[in-house]
């Protein structure tokens, strides 16, 4: 099946499901905020759609879920989902989510934000939340640039990317996010592209149902800036590029999954391991040390 056919089938499936009752996503979206601000063929909407489906498949009551975003194009996700949602400051979605989760451990707390937000300005929080194994899921939409501000180079921009602050091509080495996430302790690490709607949904289900700091990277087209400046065409052309250049390698050592400007893209589930969460460690450790003097913390 071609990419276009696959997309058509997905749209048809949604349409069939909802009949004529309204938008298939209206239970999940703040319809009074639609239309959204994202560009035509931007990949963020796909991620929101897959996230909604993942929650639906898990069957978790939406009142028990909270979404936290930072600043940027993906930072706007929090404003469109019809669940408790927080649009925080640039780079600080993860520490806000940490406080929210520890304040009420019964909540399912999900951070959805962009690459610049999570691993550049927010990089320190990313590494420490993973190290502590705070029980949150982080979904990173990686579009390889700072899109909201007009397309500046980012910590994830492949070497040689043309962007407004790398007009002659980026000469820096970008982060390999799965490698970063694994090395600082994430219990689950997967990467998919915006093309892989079923697989990214499954990855989100895995990540949302696994205790600890779980991380899903979604490579997403930025048609207005990254694709245009780097001659990848529009968003659909970029999906075709993903189709032709993605290689699924589950369990691939994350050190091998760098993304170059025009190299193949390794996708798959790379890490799935068990570690006690921060809160489990706190409760078990303090119980051991303090005995009956300890007041177990459940929120």
């Amino acid at each position: 099946m071609s990419v276009t056919d696959e997309l058509k089938a997905a749209v048809q499936a949604q349409t069939n499901k909802s009949g004529d009752a309204g938008h298939p996503m209206e239970d999940f979206l703040r319809m009074d905020r639609i239309p959204h601000i994202w560009c035509p063929t931007c990949g963020i909407g796909v991620v929101v759609n897959c996230f909604a489906r993942a929650l639906e498949k898990i069957g978790i009551p939406l009142d028990d879920v909270a979404v936290v975003s930072g600043i940027g194009c993906t930072g706007r996700v929090a404003g469109y989902v019809k669940i408790d949602s927080f649009h925080t400051t640039h780079g600080r979605a993860i520490p806000f989510a940490t406080g929210l989760k520890l304040g009420n451990p019964k909540l399912k707390v999900v951070v959805i934000s962009g690459d610049g937000d999570l691993v550049s300005i927010g990089g320190n929080h990313f590494v420490h939340a993973a190290r502590r194994n705070v029980d949150i899921t982080v979904i990173c939409v990686n579009n390889f640039n700072y899109a909201m501000t007009g397309g500046q180079m980012a910590a994830t921009s492949p070497t040689d990317s043309i962007l407004t602050t790398s007009p002659y091509g980026n000469f820096e080495t970008p982060f390999n996010l799965p490698f970063l996430a694994e090395s600082v302790g994430a219990t689950y690490v997967a990467r998919w592209t915006a093309l892989h709607i079923h697989r990214q949904t499954e990855a989100m289900i895995d990540a949302l149902t696994k205790p600890g700091f779980t991380f899903v990277e979604i490579l997403a087209p930025c048609p207005t800036i990254f694709e245009r400046r780097n001659k990848f065409g529009d968003g659909l052309d970029r999906l075709n590029y993903y189709y032709e250049h993605s290689e699924i390698k589950h369990g691939e050592p994350t050190a091998n999954v760098d993304v170059g400007l025009r190299t193949k893209i390794i996708v798959g589930k790379f890490v799935d391991k068990d570690r006690p969460t921060w809160l489990d460690s706190m409760n078990s450790h303090l119980k051991r040390k303090l005995g009956d003097r300890f007041t177990p913390y459940e929120g």
Binding site: V68, D84, F86, T88, T89, R92, P95, F96, A97, T98, G99, L100, K101, L102, G103, N104, L107, G299
Partner: peptide
């Protein structure tokens, strides 16, 4: 900012 998350959690 972590404390603000905790506040919204109650």
């Amino acid at each position: 900012i972590a404390l603000q998350g905790a506040v919204w959690a109650g």
